[in-house]
Computed example of a mutant assay.
Amino acid sequence: MFDLRNADLRKLNSMTKYPSIPTHHALDSKNGGLLEEPTQYEGPVIGTEKVDGTNGRIVLLPDGNWLIGSREDLLTARGDIVHNPALGIVDALRGVAEKAATLGSGGFGEVLVLYLEVYGSKQLPAWKHYGEGQAAVRMFDVMTAPVDMLDWPVERIASWRQNGGQIFGSEKVLADLAAQAGVDLTPRLFEIDGSDLPGDVEGMRAFLEQYKTTQVATSGEPGLNEGVVLRSPDRSVITKARFQDYDRTLKRRQKSTK
């Protein structure tokens, strides 16, 4: 029987970290700009807002316990009196974790991880784009893993994660779990066929322009959106298209032609 008190938290932390999402157009290793090498999507592509906050995770365990973490570290567990206050993540996610704990992890794997964007707080750099500084939460992904992986050496777990071993839920599973946990998803902006995405950097930047304003402002005038996350409905392919990357690349190109 799994018991959090006896679990190796280093392994649990490594197993449940969220991976980096690759850029939609490949990055040039020489200067960090974008290359004319887009990711190819076959069939439908779902575009979602890339909310500019900080990643949080809720780890639901077989014994009914839960953990809350940032992208890199575990910050608290169910029943803790004192928690790590980093970036306001625990305060923003504790209520969601308590409600999500009723979901359990059966049927979705023995460890179920909800990934959420915590944004809008004055502790975060981009808070002014979202309102007056109050924290808000949106769910953007879900992952499952077998609990017996905790018997592996921590180095093997890290390699498994870094090489794409994590199993993420489809769009339907994600939507269902978000509804059950009582939390909204990051905004769904569009669904188109992959062949309709612009192939070149300049065309993709022009395509993104219509989504430059956030849809998740908590008050006041909506500010700028960080970008768009592109994903297939089964989540087998996922990439990010950030305004900053496209603007920097095109600006560099303009300078080089002068």
Rank of each mutant, 00 (worst) to 15 (best):
P19T: 12
S20A: 13
P22L: 09
H24P: 10
H25T: 03
A26D: 10
D28H: 03
K30I: 08
N31R: 10
G32V: 12
G33C: 13
G33D: 15
L35K: 13
E36I: 07
P38Q: 13
P38D: 09
Y41Q: 01
E42M: 01
E42Q: 07
G43M: 00
I46G: 01
G47Q: 08
K50T: 06
G53F: 04
R57W: 08
L60Q: 02
L61N: 02
D63A: 11
W66T: 02
W66E: 06
L67H: 00
I68A: 05
D73C: 00
A77F: 08
R78T: 02
R78F: 03
G79I: 11
G79F: 13
D80N: 15
I81A: 11
V82N: 07
H83G: 12
P85L: 09
A86F: 12
L87V: 02
G88N: 13
V90P: 05
D91C: 08
V96Y: 11
A97W: 11
E98T: 14
K99L: 14
K99Q: 09
K99T: 11
A100W: 07
T102Y: 09
G104I: 06
S105T: 13
S105P: 04
V111M: 11
V111R: 09
V111S: 01
V113E: 01
Y115E: 14
Y115L: 13
L116S: 07
V118D: 03
Y119P: 03
G120I: 07
K122W: 02
L124E: 02
L124M: 15
L124Y: 03
P125M: 07
G131P: 00
G133W: 01
M139A: 06
F140N: 04
F140L: 06
T144E: 13
